[in-house]
């Protein structure tokens, strides 16, 4: 797994490449933008090939932690396989999901500006 963080205004785009499973979630949770609960992030999953339950757990944990501090976790650019995992687990009901990273960043910027 490879994580790259890009800053877009006040929002950090976290792009994940490869596999997100039990062995790689720790690394994700340690990354600066994720570990800072006040930082709003857009998770760019375009190049995420595989997501299992622990990976999904990490994403949901991140969302919960950030929501406590009024920060957002948005999802963008899921491929079909990841989308199905979200759907089967009902995770799609709690995330705002975008097909475009820039759109997600705009949305997150608006949300954080409101606060």
């Amino acid at each position: 797994m490879n994580i790259s963080e890009t800053q877009a205004g006040s929002i950090t785009i976290v792009a994940i490449t490869g596999t997100l499973d039990a062995s790689t979630t720790k690394e994700l949770l340690k990354s600066p933008a994720i570990s800072n609960p006040a930082q709003s992030v857009v998770m760019d999953l375009e190049h995420l090939d595989f997501l299992d339950s622990s990976g999904l757990g990490a994403l949901i944990g991140t969302l919960r932690k950030k929501r406590e501090r009024s920060a957002e976790t948005l999802i963008s650019c899921m491929n079909d396989r990841v989308r199905r995992v979200f759907e089967i687990t009902n995770a799609h009901r709690i995330f705002h999901i975008f097909d475009d990273t820039a759109a997600a960043v705009d949305y997150a910027t608006q949300l954080t500006a409101r606060i």
Binding site: H96, F98, A103
Partner: peptide, 21 residues
């Protein structure tokens, strides 16, 4: 294609969530 929305999403939000589309 298939995508997700949130029950309370407004029309501009829907369009934004499918911006690439």
């Amino acid at each position: 294609s298939y995508g997700h929305l949130q029950a309370e999403d407004s029309l501009p939000e829907l369009l934004n969530k499918s911006r690439k589309f």
